[in-house]
Amino acid sequence: MTPLSYCTNVHPAEDLAGVLAQLDRYAEPIRRLVGVDVLGLGLWLPAVLAGELAAAPALRAKLRAELDARGLEVHTLNAFPYGGFHDEVVKHSVYRPEWTNEARLRYTADCATVLADLLPDSAVYGSISTLPLAWRTPWSPADDEVATTALTSLTTTLAGMAAANGRPIRLAVEPEPGCVLDTVADAVSWLAPRVDPRYIGLCLDTCHLAVSFADPAATVEQIYRSGLEVVKVQASAALQVEDPATGPARLALADFTEPRYLHQVRERTGSGTVLAADDLPQALTELPGRDPWRVHFHVPLHARPAAPLSATTDVLRTAIAALQSTVDDTLPHVEVETYTWSVLPETAGNGGDTALIRGIAAELRWAVANLLEPGGVR
């Protein structure tokens, strides 16, 4: 049975008390609304908290007990944001510290220590998603070597944990537009000759995949042909607009410009060239707008944006179908990751705790109905 989770990076919390409060305020009500006995969480732990938990077995046991008491379980952690993910302005800071910084290695190893004690007894493996090395600039061949050394060190740590615990924790590198590993093709090319695929693979974020205009089925084939695997899927959808130069499209897109997160935009021309802008405000002034746009803005899976905008849920469906035809047994971990609820326009679903709880529950029900086998929620 495929573990399905929702990612808690949608909730602001920087300490254990805040995380535990999330469980009561959001996660348990979502579980009840979905109507399952056990609900999966893709837990986000800021670096300071991850370090505290890694250093204190008693705190890890407390967190595990609190999860169990509420019918919640953790197969996967999101270790992409290091901290401050709900600051007033996040933008490029989410890509720091980079994989050239020892702090990134330490944070990820701490997350592995925590996850090993949170995994349910039924889990085959645990997964941790991470950033695609860094934002693309500055980056040098020397940085390649430092990052390779860091991932090799992490692999040694994960291999030792697997030998001790009997099941692996696996790192899932998440390509993202604008980063060193901008596309899945970039990630495959960089990772395949450098990493041990038993411990390091890909996080396939289907919003990022859609923004890159890559073919989902061909992308899945390329990953497995390289010897790598999809360790984790972040089930997500991007904004799409077929004719971004029109007045109604411009007005609709302007509603999605906001100051907290980066919203990279790609325009695919008739010749197949993909033009790039690093954020939506820049795209509205710099891209020609003669051809379709896709925008890195995670939108709820179950609710299509109002015309003339749409969502790339078909990319998600196709990617999951390709994985189902590729893997021998169950799918990788699937995590619904719509972290943007707090910055959605009012017309797109923003509306306080009740709307958030109902919205996430609706996304999870959509994922079961559209992506997984009947009864697949765990």
Rank of each mutant, 00 (worst) to 15 (best):
S5I: 02
E14K: 11
L16F: 06
L20W: 06
A21C: 03
D24Q: 05
R25C: 03
Y26T: 00
A27G: 01
A27L: 00
E28A: 15
V34C: 08
V36G: 02
L43F: 09
L43G: 02
L49T: 13
G51P: 00
E52F: 04
E52N: 07
A65S: 08
L67D: 08
R70Q: 04
T76G: 01
L77M: 11
A79E: 06
V90G: 11
H92G: 04
H92K: 09
N101A: 15
S122I: 02
P132V: 06
A134L: 03
T137Q: 06
P138F: 03
D143A: 14
E145C: 05
G166P: 13
G166F: 13
E174Q: 14
P175C: 05
P177C: 10
P177M: 05
T183L: 10
A192I: 12
G201A: 12
L202A: 06
L204M: 14
H208W: 05
A210F: 13
E221D: 14
L228V: 09
E229D: 13
Q234N: 15
E242H: 03
G247H: 09
P259Y: 00
R266E: 05
R268S: 10
E286W: 09
L287R: 12
R290F: 08
D291S: 14
R294S: 00
A303I: 01
P305W: 04
A307D: 15
S310Q: 15
T313M: 11
L316N: 09
P332F: 02
T354K: 11
A355D: 11
L356Q: 07
R358L: 02
R358G: 08
G359N: 05
A361Q: 04
A362F: 06
